[in-house]
Design a protein around this nucleic acid. Structure first.
Length: 248
DNA sequence: AAGCCAGTCAACCGCAGGGGT
DNA sequence: GACCCCTGCGGTTGACTGGCT
């Protein structure tokens, strides 16, 4: 006995939306909004679609206040940073980027950012400077390293959502001297440091099962005793949140 | 021109959890 | 407290596209 389906699958259309269906849903939402439930919306909007499908289509595609594609380097760096601390909490991460949907952020991670990070891990592993992945340029350019930076407290609690979206100013610029080995890594042999950057969260099963942990483990394994180098390289991707931000 | 392959992204699925009864 | 309904979320799938052979 499984859960009852949310709609009659034989009676609803599935697959890609036609322009006519888009128009019907857009027109209905702009006229009335979704004042009832999503389940009943298809009937009200005269659509042969499942309510969940309507919701997804509206939230991820038709909504007027969203952007598609064209992620900037700044957004990439923010995604890396938030992913390193939150794991695959796509809705949380998307909520911190202006007009981005969780589906878009998730797709962008899976198709671009994850691969870039994997490539970086491989490049670091082989110590091949020529194949090193360029780090997000705007960070280094716009945020010269301050002379006095406080390390993040470790561990960082699972945050609630910051009210406004993040900008670069919410992140610490990397500082080689301060990016020491992360504490409490679960899959790599890192330990030791009592404070430092928050790479441990990348490997923290509580917040990120099987997500960034693998990449972090790759870096740590490749780094051997050269943890400082790994940390320096990683810092090009993950920027610790400013500790003065209240994330709890 | 045809076939293959990898990348992209829209859409679906199942589950968790909140709220109402 | 138990049950049901609904929404939101994250993982996954599959259609589509463009590049390469």
């Amino acid at each position: 006995m499984g859960r009852a389906p949310c709609c009659d699958r034989a009676a609803v259309k599935r697959g890609p939306w036609s322009p006519e269906e888009d128009d019907a849903l857009r027109d209905y939402m702009q006229r009335y909004g979704n004042t009832g439930s999503w389940i009943t919306l298809p009937k009200r909007a005269r659509l042969r679609r499942c309510g969940k499908s309507c919701r997804l289509r509206w939230l991820n595609y038709l909504r007027p206040d969203i952007r598609h594609g064209g992620f900037t380097d700044e957004e990439d760096a923010i995604i890396y940073s938030l992913y390193s601390q939150l794991g695959s909490k796509w809705s949380l991460i998307a909520s911190q980027l202006e007009r981005r949907t969780d589906n878009d952020v998730k797709n962008h991670w899976n198709t671009k950012l994850k691969k870039r990070l994997a490539t970086a891990a491989a490049a670091f592993s082989s110590r091949s400077p020529s194949s090193m992945v360029p780090l997000p340029a705007p960070v280094a350019a716009a945020h010269p390293t301050p002379s006095t930076l406080l390390p993040l407290a470790v561990p960082v609690p699972v945050p609630t959502v910051k009210a406004e979206t993040y900008t670069y100013d919410d992140f610490l610029a990397p500082d080689d001297a301060l990016f020491v080995a992360a504490e409490g890594s679960t899959s790599a042999s890192l330990s030791a440091a009592s404070s430092g950057s928050n790479w441990s969260a990348v490997d923290n099963g509580a917040t990120n099962e099987g997500g960034g942990g693998g990449f972090f483990a790759d870096f740590c394994t490749a780094a051997g005793s050269d943890l400082a180098a790994a940390d320096q390289y990683l810092s090009g991707f993950f920027y610790p949140l400013d500790p003065t931000l209240s994330l709890v």
